[in-house]
Amino acid sequence: MTLRDVRQRPHVVLIPLVFVAFVAAWESIVRAWRIPDYLLPAPSAIARALGLGLTNRLYVEHAWVTVSEALLGFLIAAATGVVLGTVIAQFRLVERTLYPYVVAFQTLPKIAVAPLLVVWLGFGVSSKIVIAALVAFFPVLVNVIVGLKTVDAPKLDLMRSLSATRWQTFRFVTFPNALPFVFAGLDIAVVFSVLGAIVGEFVGSQRGLGNLILQFNTALDIAGMFAVLLLLAALGVALHLIMQAIQRRVIFWAQPDHVIGA
């Protein structure tokens, strides 16, 4: 990287610099004030805990549980969200009938249902999958509906001028046109599904990263808790990047800034 590159894109240097400065300040404050590990561990202690947990595979096994819960929940949410969203957007009567319920459920904080689901479905993975699906479902549903309804009139005129059937218009125009929105919803949903799985594990579980956080919490292993948080952050970033990569291939024609969020 030359000096000129740095001048043109200073943030490329500033991003790691902020990280290094932050970690260094944290480390020196903890050392200088002799803050005990059970209050705030130094970054070096967190790194040690993370290294240890990763090498004895403790974190990996728990992480695998959480990831599979989240991904299964996400897939259920994606499938039902796309199907139900399509039905709602295509049929006026269905929309008018169901929309009040959609709005009501959407405003309900879904994670509040988690204890109930654990009672119904038990401490195993199934309750976590359902919670993850529930939390991830609405961003998909809403974006599918919005996406299917934002077709510009000229494209519909074109299809009408060809006497296209409703199905042809859906298949050739409305559906592909909605894909950027659908992917925006999926991108949010995948992150939400991890949130749902963790919350489910908090409420009652035997395994998973959420469970591990609770274990560390009881043992006052604060460094371990931070290590799990780092792992969760890395997981979130990885899922987001995978979604972005899929998105770039599927909706190659759409610029990211054409898409609205949730």
């Binding site: 000229p154 494209k155 074109l158 001028s161 050739f172 592909p176 909706i251 190659f252 024609w253």
Partner: peptide, 13 residues
């Protein structure tokens, strides 16, 4: 009838 609209109205995908 074939129509050429004011905008090209192509399907970007």
């Amino acid at each position: 009838v074939g129509i050429v609209f004011q905008d090209p109205v192509l399907l970007p995908w």
